[in-house]
Amino acid sequence: ALYYYADNPQRPYDPEKAKQMLSAAGVSNLTLKYLIRAGDEVDEQTAVLVQQQLAQAGITANLQKVDPSQEWDMTIAGDYDISVNYWTNDILDPDQKTTFVLGHDSNNNYMTNYKNDAVKDLVAKARLELDPKKREQMYIDLQKMAKDDVNWIDLYYSPYINVARKNIDNFHQNPLGRFFLEDTVKN
């Protein structure tokens, strides 16, 4: 990905450290509302795994299965503590994601309610920067700042998987998931 910063901090699973951090913050018996899209098998399996991992740190995650449209409304309203969602870019430029997820736009930073004014300002400046080296550094700085704030946690990368019969030729999909069917033929 353009301007990807490979040295972003990795946050290893460490329930004992989490317990210590909660204790130092004066938090005990933490219970979180975890929204799940009912009928989404991957979302449900992910929720059970995350729930089990949180339990090891002494955190209770109450799973709440709701209809996908209700889940969307609840995330928009901020009526949740944990929710797993997906992200895919429509364009190769990082501005789309930084604006949508870090720039305090009308979607409340993809329903995370993340706010950092220094990050927001840098998002706006990076969008307008024409010098490729300066722009790259801005996007590296944005990644560092947002990851330091733990604006969200990346759980996994799910590549596009396509299946076609042997009699299909010239089916192509770009890394953003767009199909190119102009030259696709069935023999």
Rank of each mutant, 00 (worst) to 15 (best):
Y156H: 08
G58N: 05
Q143G: 12
L32Y: 09
N116H: 09
D7S: 06
D131W: 00
P132M: 04
I36G: 00
Y80V: 02
M21T: 08
H104R: 03
P175I: 05
L2Y: 01
A61R: 03
Q64F: 01
I82H: 00
A25F: 01
A47S: 02
E71S: 04
M21L: 11
Q51D: 08
R165A: 07
I168W: 05
L22H: 00
Y4N: 06
Y3G: 04
V185W: 12
P12L: 04
N113F: 15
I36S: 06
T75C: 03
D183L: 02
E71D: 01
S23D: 10
Q10N: 14
G39K: 10
N29E: 12
D149C: 03
F100T: 04
T46A: 10
V50A: 13
V101C: 03
L142G: 08
N116V: 08
L92A: 03
D141N: 13
Q53W: 08
T184I: 02
Y157D: 04
A18I: 14
Q96H: 13
Q51A: 07
K147F: 15
D131L: 01
K133T: 09
A146V: 15
Y86G: 04
L176K: 08
S23G: 08
K65N: 01
V185Q: 15
L128C: 11
L128R: 14
V84S: 03
E16Q: 14
Y80P: 01
N89P: 12
H104Y: 09
A77F: 11
N170L: 00
Y5D: 07
T99Q: 12
I76V: 15
P159I: 06
S83C: 11
Y157N: 10
T60H: 12
V101I: 11
T88A: 01
F180W: 00
I140N: 05
V27R: 12
I168Q: 04
D90S: 13
T46L: 14
A118L: 09
